[in-house]
Design a protein around this nucleic acid. Structure first.
Lengths: 213, 213
DNA sequence: TGTGCGTCAGAACGGGTGTTCCGATCTGGG
DNA sequence: CCCAGATCGGAACACCCGTTCTGACGCACA
């Protein structure tokens, strides 16, 4: 039941997206029926239930045209929903989502204009814990958007994974010989030195947001 | 026929906008009837025809829920497009958009999740010029979202209009007796003192964003 | 070969929905 | 006062629409 989409389900989904773009209101079951060349409304209902179980659409029962296609990007505004996949500080390890992996609906997201990401793909976000980057204008509670990368140039602000310590921290990255200096931007804190093979760069900072309300 | 909106028509329009934001599909005539406390569907139909003649909505006849409210941005998942209406620094005056005023489509916008604005309406954004708020973690080039208000409590970060000087600045606000202290968050800069009647608060900071790419 | 399961076709039911008609009420002007 | 037009209330009609029921078909599996 929770496997791949059938041809018919894919067709229904595509039709609903197209219908929404053209009409500003969702299609009825019979619209879908005729638009996809399906012979019976019960078949549409059957497949819609399957799509609903897979979490791809949401329906208000007994209400006409009350189908909502989840994750449908409006073509008018290039907005990317970036998943906030965890926290970053001096301790809590995080998982970086793999390319193409689906993100559970339960996770928090932050919306960012596509144009601010300069074409980066598979970006993710972390909530900052602690004040170690206060001098880089990043405060406790800020949400930081990363592009996934394993490479960093000196001075880049990165999420760095310390393999032996099992920690991920937000620091400035400097490669000095065969060791790495992870520099906090807080004059009261000392840098972390580690061997280069113990440091795994997970992402580079693209964007910072802070709520002041 | 083409004059002002009646109370009922205004109510219907407001209800439809709210319904669209909440439900992702348009309301039926009877939804409008009950939502606005109208006694008959024919009255709704009558007023919808009037709104259609005025060009405020568009309808597909004979199709249920086929009402499109023109000029209403379908924010797919509670996203508000906040207009970036100018810059704020130590000089350039800005115009704060009046409530309900339309913002030209040509202006830059920044997209923010509705939930981060805590119900504030008519918010606007400014691009920060200069480093006067560097110690408050706001840098040159950051975009700051404001809620429009004429009131500020001590310590609030506000956009303040200096009437005689014809300037708008981003500072922390402190009312001290009959004068106002506008405190930059930069240890190298001195505060501005001005009489209270010369200072007009234009908005309070809600949200800060910075692009690092 | 039979059984269960996923999928589909057709039809019908009941309530939802846009529309229309008739008449009442209100309002402004002659 | 009287009339015309705008607005409204109530009801009915015909179609739209989501749902459900019955049965059929194909396919994997024992």
């Amino acid at each position: 039941m929770r496997g791949k989409l059938s041809v018919k389900q894919e067709k229904i989904l595509t039709f609903m997206r197209q219908f929404l773009d053209e009409n500003a209101y969702p299609p009825s079951i019979r619209d879908i029926q005729h638009g996809c060349g399906i012979s019976s409304t019960s078949v549409v209902d059957y497949n819609l239930k399957a799509l609903e179980n897979m979490g791809l659409i949401r329906r208000d029962r007994e209400v006409s045209r009350a189908i909502e296609v989840l994750g449908h990007r409006r073509n008018s505004n290039g907005i990317v929903s970036v998943p906030v996949v965890g926290q970053i500080a001096a301790g809590a390890p995080i998982d970086v989502p793999e390319s193409g992996a689906s993100v559970p609906d339960t996770s928090e997201t932050i919306e960012v204009s596509e144009r601010l990401l300069f074409g980066r793909d598979n970006v993710f976000a972390l909530r900052v814990k602690g004040t170690s980057m206060i001098d880089a204008l990043i405060n406790d509670g800020d949400i930081v958007v990363f592009e996934p990368t394993n490479h960093a140039d000196n001075g880049d602000m990165v999420a760095a994974w310390l393999k032996r310590e099992g920690e991920t921290t937000l620091k400035k990255y400097y490669l000095e010989g065969d060791r790495v200096r992870l520099q906090p931007m807080n004059t009261t804190m000392a840098p972390i030195y580690s061997s280069a093979d113990n440091v795994q760069v997970q992402g580079r900072v693209l964007y910072v947001t802070r709520s002041m309300a």
